[in-house]
Design a binder for these strands. Sequence first.
DNA 1: CTGAAAGCGCTTACAG
DNA 2: CTGAAAGCGCTTACAG
Lengths: 349, 349
Amino acid sequence: MARTSEGAAGARPTIRDIARVAGVSKASVSYALNDLPGVSEETRARVRATATELGWRPSAAARSLSRARAGAVGLAVARDVRLLEEEPYYMRFIAGMEGVLAREGVSLLLSVVPDVDAAVEVLRDWWGERRVDGVVLTDLRVEDPRVALVAELGIPCAVRPGVDDRLPGGERPGVPVEAERRSFVEVVDHLVGLGHRRLARVAGPREFLHTRRRDVAWAEVTRSRLGREAPVVVADHTSAGGLAATRDLLARAGPPTAVVYDNDVMAAAVVAERESLGVRVPEDLAVVAGEDSMLCRLASPAISCLHRDVVADGAQSARSLLEVVLGRRSEAVVFEPHRLVVRGTTSTG
Amino acid sequence: MARTSEGAAGARPTIRDIARVAGVSKASVSYALNDLPGVSEETRARVRATATELGWRPSAAARSLSRARAGAVGLAVARDVRLLEEEPYYMRFIAGMEGVLAREGVSLLLSVVPDVDAAVEVLRDWWGERRVDGVVLTDLRVEDPRVALVAELGIPCAVRPGVDDRLPGGERPGVPVEAERRSFVEVVDHLVGLGHRRLARVAGPREFLHTRRRDVAWAEVTRSRLGREAPVVVADHTSAGGLAATRDLLARAGPPTAVVYDNDVMAAAVVAERESLGVRVPEDLAVVAGEDSMLCRLASPAISCLHRDVVADGAQSARSLLEVVLGRRSEAVVFEPHRLVVRGTTSTG
DNA sequence: CTGAAAGCGCTTACAG
DNA sequence: CTGAAAGCGCTTACAG
């Protein structure tokens, strides 16, 4: 209750101090503080009170060493700094993870590196030094070296639910492709309902697994809805790339009247540059973004998009990972696919 | 050279193994691997080779325990998730920190919490369990409880150079206010040069220390350049807040012809909603954003702004922190203030 | 230059 | 229910 003066700031109390003050052994202190059987309720209460009074906190290092567990998980974001600026995404994802991790007293190590190879090095270091008990992988690439590493070293690992593909050997059901399909059905039906027949898609780099999955879904959905596969142009997720790809599409014979972009940045760039592209939006060109963001909301016209609950995704990734790491079952996975949000770029409001 | 099969994946080699294989004591191994005197060059080489061969990596927990150092620093971002979405800022800042930390083998713990009080709890936990050796504080508030905590517990700490104020007792020179002044001089001179006489500013919440400093600088600069203090309306950094504040300003007698916003989101919202606000940009209203981002670049017209090198800021913060934590002098601080970037919202290009 | 030993702060069988 | 003891993997005086 009373704040005891614990002496110099440097002198952290240890369980040894607690044992001495409470008049029990170190072992009993450990049992009491960890809610393990082996001590009477009376002793437990006394130990707890003493710990509080001394302002004791477990040493992460000591605990980590004796438990052979880091008490931390890692997220290594592999993305060019230039693209990072365009990605408000991750902070929200992290906030979602945080909520789940904090509850279990697990810390989050974050690394932001320019590419996958650098990420591999980070993962190797983290795991080699046991700084983490597991990792979350995002933006999985085709033949991703991180996946190989994780498999080789047996690093517990989770991916983004419904966004990145499952890992080899992972038990996660193959929902992702199905999710992309559902999303595109919604988008395509919406556009067809508005009278569009010539659709196109500006995709992200083919190195991303989710780009590949979207390719498959897009082909299927447009074939089934329009009778033929609608064209796809690959770009690099940047505004310049999105513009170039769009120019390419508009220069074709029978240019598209509606374009679906794999992310928000490319769509926003096109809406911003509509004049120089020589189109009115949505009259000449309807635009749909593959991700939602401020960019979509503050564009004029505001951009229709596939929206996800990113915070929930982060929470789910953390949950999956802890399940593996702590070997604990958690709440059922409520899988939430993209949801179409209709705004000015696909409606004449 | 040859990858020796180290047996089961779970069996990490320790210095004990190295000592056995190399035929020396554990102490010698430690000296050799840490580049300390006390071993012959020949022994050092043999030990190193053995370590490599066995695939040894130091145990972060063991090292941390015996060195009484976590080998990690923390960044606790205190910001509402809702605002986070509007802030692509942090990932770049973190990428900047990363570059510096990685070189020293220091990990970054990240926490994203909704408010300052939650951040205090995180800092208390981190430091209590010695998960970090120090922390970086951002978005300092007036009477910030984190500053009090850091002082009370003696947590090594750094702030963003030129953005957040120095800490009490910190040695960092008081450049920040001067930096804001220089920035506003540039902005105001630019606007006055375009013929504007009625300026106004939409500020962020007064709880932020940097808002207060900008208040001072804005008052000084407008008084000296215009002969009177230009008005300021406080908003909350959100698009809705920015719009409301702007409506307020425009409804006044002698409304401003140029408005400077404390961040990018508010400025972008105003540009996006210029029609409903009943103004043309820049003809009726010139707009300047206090931060640069994709939002500014993709607005139409593109938004003039005060631009900073955020990655460099992150690097500098990490450097300052390591200087305190490692007690090591680092490169001189090259302080870079905001730089005015002129775009369509303040020019008739 | 090298080795045996204690210690960092916990956890966890193992005897009483 | 309780205590003495060994161990986690390092570091670091302290003797040879």
